[in-house]
């Protein structure tokens, strides 16, 4: 890939990933967000849905490359360069999702916090957080759908924190790759989070689940094929080379 192609590709990827966030800002500014009966519910689902879809998009990149190589086409190989960036956007939306829960869902008094800030009482936002803290703690202790959702976010946080090139070099490609395989676990946990949230009889999460299953299936199939095709003494070397692609 030429520098120019990479630049164009990255610009397009940024633009695509930012569309949902910009759409939310647009809905806020033109009043259509507040014109809804329950904007909090809407924002919660909106940010949650996009976090998951973008996470799936990042998971889809490697299988796409594998499949296109399988049919002898190298045109999609360059996509791997955008994988980390797409993953970071998934973390961005997951964080918005978590913030929606903390600031809008749990009873945090945002207008009061803002008013106090304007009046110069700088500790009020913190005091507000202390007031809702027992509710949040109670939720995290009691509700398994919140536990798995939070676990998924913690994984994404860890991957985001270790995403800079410096960190990769510091911990080594092999370790980094191992750590970043946790992204599959995050995807699975996020799906479980969704299923445990909806009412019995409601099947809204089925599309996400189907896509995730297919992606994991492809990954597993390629993983197995690769393992079988490489003699044991060569595996170590191959892995080292593979990590080169992943950076």
């Amino acid at each position: 890939m030429t520098q120019r192609q990479i630049l164009i590709g990255k610009t397009v990827a940024h633009a695509l990933c930012l569309i949902p966030a910009l759409d939310l800002v647009r809905m806020y500014r033109n009043g259509s967000l507040v014109a809804q009966a329950d904007p909090v519910n809407f924002i919660t689902h909106f940010t949650g849905d996009w976090a998951l879809w973008i996470l799936l998009a990042s998971l889809a990149i490697t299988p796409l490359c594998c499949l296109s190589q399988g049919v002898g086409w190298q045109g999609l190989n360059g996509l791997v360069r955008f994988r980390r960036m797409v993953g970071l956007y998934a973390f961005f939306y997951a964080t918005l999702h978590l913030l929606t829960y903390v600031l809008l869902f749990s009873g945090y008094n945002v207008p009061a916090a803002f008013a106090a800030l304007e009046a110069g009482r700088l500790l009020e936002p913190w005091r507000q957080l202390q007031m809702i803290w027992p509710t949040i703690l109670d939720d995290v202790q009691k509700r398994r759908f919140i536990q798995v959702g939070f676990a998924a976010w913690l994984i994404l946080l860890m991957l985001a924190a270790t995403s800079p090139r410096r960190v990769l070099k510091a911990i080594g490609g092999r370790n980094w790759q191992r750590l970043h395989r946790l992204v599959y676990l995050a995807g699975a946990l996020a799906c479980v989070h969704y299923w445990w949230l909806v009412k019995t009889g409601v099947r809204t999460p089925w599309k996400l689940t189907a896509v995730l299953t297919v992606l994991l299936g492809i990954r597993a199939a390629f993983g197995m094929r690769k393992r079988n095709s490489i003699p044991p003494d060569r595996r170590k070397k191959e892995n080292r080379e593979a990590t080169g692609v992943l950076t």
């Binding site: 967000l33 009966a37 809008l104 009873g107 509710t135 109670d138 939720d139």
Partner: peptide, 23 residues
Amino acid sequence: VDHPRWSQAHERLLNAYTLFPKV
């Protein structure tokens, strides 16, 4: 008595068009 998946101690009062409904 909580719902297994959320607390029933509070409710989001939907009676005004606002981004910050009262809980």
